[in-house]
Amino acid sequence: MNAKRTDFLATVVINLIVATVVGILVFLLAYILISGLPHVSWSFLTGTTDAFSGAGGIGVQLFNSFYLLVLTMLISVPISLGAGIYLAEYAKDNWRTSLIRSAIEVLSSLPSVVVGLFGFLLFVVKFKIGFSVISGAIALTFFNLPLLTRNIEESLSAVSRSQREAGLSLGLSKWKTEIGIILPVALPGIVTGIVLSAGRVFGEAAALIYTAGQSAPVTNFGDWNPMDPASPLNPFRPAETLAVHIWKVNTEGLANNAAQLSAAASAVLIIAVLLFNLGARLLGNFLYRRVTASK
């Protein structure tokens, strides 16, 4: 077989593989949207769920998903930023560092059910926090940390060494160089990592069933004091998320239209993830342009 023929065949095969992947993706998205969207209405998006049957709207769950996401990110981004900076910049290349790296990898391969049960035993039972947004957010942080830390470390390491030398040669401290010069350049990569992990958090159900709980008590959206039990911002209230709701409607739901309900909720979940990704990317690009003065 000559080189030209080999190239042609390889191109065809690669194109076929890509087409298959794209095809599956489009089919899945289209299927979920087509079967779900017709059942989505304003009252479904904003309404409350009947606690017994699981029927009714998903307003509270939708809010819970976003709130949990924000809370998780508030906890996990600063921690993984610190860990990522440490690993990329300060850690010496020795056995201790490789031990930390292996520990992070092990953490990332933990099944989410195990993380959920751990969160249940530690936060819900032992610390008596109960099923709550905060328990859920901490459990999700466990999951998020390895992915985000790895991503931040890699984004920082990808920035040329000559940028670090430039900062140091001007008498800037290592820390100032890292925060003021390296981090802005690494920002797009870090935003990508945050978006990816946010998608995981949004879609996670197993770890939340035992931590954030399976009930979405009616909350008063007029009350924004996080200390009030009925406030949507209260981090100590149980909070069923959209993904958990979909799982519950399908397994325990007593509503007649359970199939339609979960189809509609799935469609909403997918759209919410897409919107979040889009928003995070726009924000990331905007920030990047601001700090680097590129157009």
Binding site: S160, S162, Q163, E165, A166, G167, S169, L170, I181, P184, V185, V291, T292, A293, S294
Partner: peptide
């Protein structure tokens, strides 16, 4: 002060 082999202005 120091100037390096490859120009290394900050991305600013």
């Amino acid at each position: 002060g120091m100037v390096f082999q490859r120009p290394n202005p900050f991305a600013k």
